[in-house]
Design a protein around this nucleic acid. Structure first.
Length: 283
DNA sequence: ATGGGGGCCTGCCGGC
DNA sequence: TGCCGGCAGGCCCCCA
């Protein structure tokens, strides 16, 4: 499911039922996802109040009253489902347990948060809140694309001398953190840049123009509640709808949406992943 | 140091 | 109906 807009959507859905609330019990139904869970994870979560839910790139971070922070990554297929009716908002009651329900957080307010992840590329870990930035998975991340540290000079510097295609460069979380396959394709389309162009061979003005485009694509997607592919749902069960706004992603063979272009969206494979683009208007 | 590819998993879909 | 290949929103790790 999850690139930055989907993770942000999940965070916003979880916030009202988790922040300020206490984890009464944690069911941990297997020893690992992508990596082993930290020792005693269930016990370390039990009785903790969730002070704040944050997001860094595609990670959700729950700061706990114990001084620890729970890190959650959704991988490719992870979902966080909220059930129960703690706020009088969620009409559905607790559903029957599903296959791949790996971790269930029972909140004292009656809400239940279920982490379901068929492919198990997701992850959970616990760390000291004070050292969260030093976590192995977080310390390597580049700037947040919606934050102040992501700007023209940064991207120009990061692309300098890079012989890798711009598609790969933008997927590199060390350069900018939170983009994935969909939003890189969409941003490159909006910026009229071919995914095959070598990052280091793009002119400075065109790199600079990419910055606001990336911000806007992400903002548009967050506004729409993310993209719902393969039945991804927000935490409250609603579907995001940004997938209806895709210009190129998943549109192989369809006409380019640039007015007057007349081109056709193509699919190519770059470092093992599909890139969708219009060779007519993306140069 | 950099870039490319393999691998981790399950599920779904289309073709034969 | 069943089997098989291909594909999927991520990312670590190893190799040249």
């Amino acid at each position: 499911m999850p690139e930055l807009p989907e993770v942000e959507t999940v965070r916003r859905g979880l916030s009202p039922v988790m922040e300020g609330q206490v984890i009464a019990r944690a069911d941990v139904n297997r020893p690992d996802l992508r990596w082993p869970f930290p020792p005693g994870m269930a016990e370390r979560l039990t009785g903790c109040q969730v002070a704040r839910l944050r997001r860094r790139s595609k990670y959700i971070l729950a700061d706990l009253s114990s001084g620890e922070t729970l890190l959650i990554h959704l991988g490719m297929s992870g979902r966080m489902l909220v059930s129960g009716d703690p706020l009088g908002v969620f009409v559905h009651d607790h559903p029957a347990p599903q296959k791949h329900d790996h971790v269930v957080l029972h909140m004292r307010n009656g809400a239940r948060i279920t982490f379901n992840d068929p492919r198990r590329f997701g992850a959970m870990d616990l760390m000291e809140t004070a050292r969260a930035d030093d976590h192995k998975l977080l310390r390597v991340l580049g700037p947040e694309p919606l934050g102040n540290d992501f700007h023209e000079d940064h991207l120009i510097g990061a692309f300098q001398g890079k012989m890798t295609p711009v598609k790969s460069a933008l997927l590199d979380q060390r350069i900018v953190a939170g983009l994935g396959n969909i939003y890189v394709c969409e941003a490159l389309f909006r910026a009229c840049i071919s995914p095959r162009r070598k990052a280091g061979h793009i002119s400075k003005p065109r790199i600079a123009a990419l910055v606001p485009v990336i911000r806007q694509v992400l903002a548009d997607a967050i506004e729409a509640g993310g993209s719902s592919l393969r039945d991804f749902r927000q935490a409250d069960g609603e579907l995001g709808y940004f997938q209806h706004s895709f210009d190129v992603y998943g549109r192989e063979g369809a006409p380019c949406r640039t007015p007057g272009c007349g081109g056709t969206v193509r699919r190519i494979v770059q470092s093992g992943r599909s890139s969708f683009f219009c060779a007519q208007c993306q140069r």
